[in-house]
Design a protein around this nucleic acid. Structure first.
Lengths: 219, 219
DNA sequence: AATAATTTTTAGTCTTGTCTAAAATTTTTT
DNA sequence: AAAAAATTTTAGACAAGACTAAAAATTATT
């Protein structure tokens, strides 16, 4: 269908579009794709010819419905493969991304359907990100940042903002993993660091930097 | 490491080398790769520069140890993925090849190690072909063609010669699947077709054409 | 051994995706 | 509103992998 590279561009533009409402400019695409603005302009023209995005010179781009659909399919594949790697092959959550970057480009609708079924139709990947459904619908939850939680509030760790290995490994080390019950027991005014209680027993200290990157589900 | 295309060439040359003792010529590579002799010459030069094969103009090629090692690694990946698709995702044995052709190029030694372990260190793929071990050793069995078996001889279906979908689907339909016990009860002199008994109860007729493509393990 | 047929290689071109350097456009600053 | 800065596009080039057509080498035939 579409090339490895085309899929990566569409996915990158889709993700930029998620946070930014207006048209996505050339430089920001170049930044996330680790390439030059000139290369981005070249690729944008090709994707525009294929009606995957709308492009006006110097005005940035916006995905068409077709482009968005393709991007979401790639995200779905990526997150299903991450789930497979973590749940079945016992990869740690900081190890799955790079391999899933390759696996997401395997072409076979049947494969993805069967993988989805084999995994038990998971709704979220190992980082807590929602897995788009087969029809393209993404069920998003209303998460709140751990750093925004008030005193005595309880919640369940449900996702991360920062996806870097460094951060994920840190969370792994201090055992702040997906699904754990957390209660804020102290907010330090000086540095905004938190004292939190984990699953009723353990009590630990975390920096605001860490808390700002953890997504919580609260009642 | 090596590109998708380079790996495919190495695998193709390795397979040709398996049946042919002497150097592999350009045209035979072009035939199995569905490309032109000119393209093969181009690629051969690149692989030769990388010391993956030995090449003398007009004299054909032979894989070096390094080239053979890479080819076997690709075969190992291919067969492990086929096993995964068949054993875990319930793909039929004629459906696994094309997807495994893509999956075999995913780069991650850890992934292959973990997949191998997850599958329980299988020795053969869904077509009965041996899966090379991590160290490159391939344990081959001494199979005999069903068409070469003598009257009253028993054996277990252990592999196929022809890997085409058409043939595999035919075997599936007449339930001649891997692992079944077969006894030759009649050999028809006219067309060399066979009457065989399956698992003690069922009795069926098969053509010599079919029998010539089935590999049996006998005591 | 010369000619014919086949095989293989070379030369030149194409596509995809990338790059640098320069030109064009837009945005910001004064 | 003009000049400066930043962004974006164009032009030209390159590498990988492929192709066609023509040349070179090998093998087969007479």
């Amino acid at each position: 269908m579409y090339s490895y590279t085309e899929e990566n561009y569409l996915k990158a533009i889709y993700k930029l579009q998620e946070k930014n409402n207006d048209a996505i400019n050339t430089n920001s695409i170049a930044r996330v794709m680790s390439t030059t603005a000139a290369s981005v302009t070249d690729m944008i023209k090709k994707l525009s010819d294929k009606k995957l995005l709308e492009y006006q010179k110097y005005k940035g781009v916006q995905l068409t419905e077709s482009g968005k659909k393709t991007a979401i399919e790639t995200v779905r594949k990526h997150r299903l493969w991450e789930t497979f790697l973590h749940n079945k092959l016992n990869f740690l959550w900081d190890e799955v991304h790079d391999i899933a970057e390759q696996l997401e480009h395997i072409q076979s609708q049947t494969l993805i359907d069967k993988l989805d079924e084999y995994l038990g139709f998971p709704t979220h990947d190992p980082h807590g990100d929602p897995i788009p459904e087969r029809n393209g619908i993404i069920k998003t939850s209303n998460y709140v940042l751990l750093s925004d939680m008030t005193l005595e509030k309880e919640g369940i760790i449900s996702g991360v903002v920062n996806h870097s290995s460094l951060f994920l490994q840190h969370l792994q080390k201090i055992e702040l993993t997906l699904g754990r019950l957390v209660k804020v027991i102290e907010i330090n005014a000086f540095d905004l660091s938190l004292s939190i209680q984990l699953d009723k027993d353990q009590k630990i200290q975390i920096s605001n930097e860490v808390a700002r990157n953890i997504l919580m589900k609260t009642k």
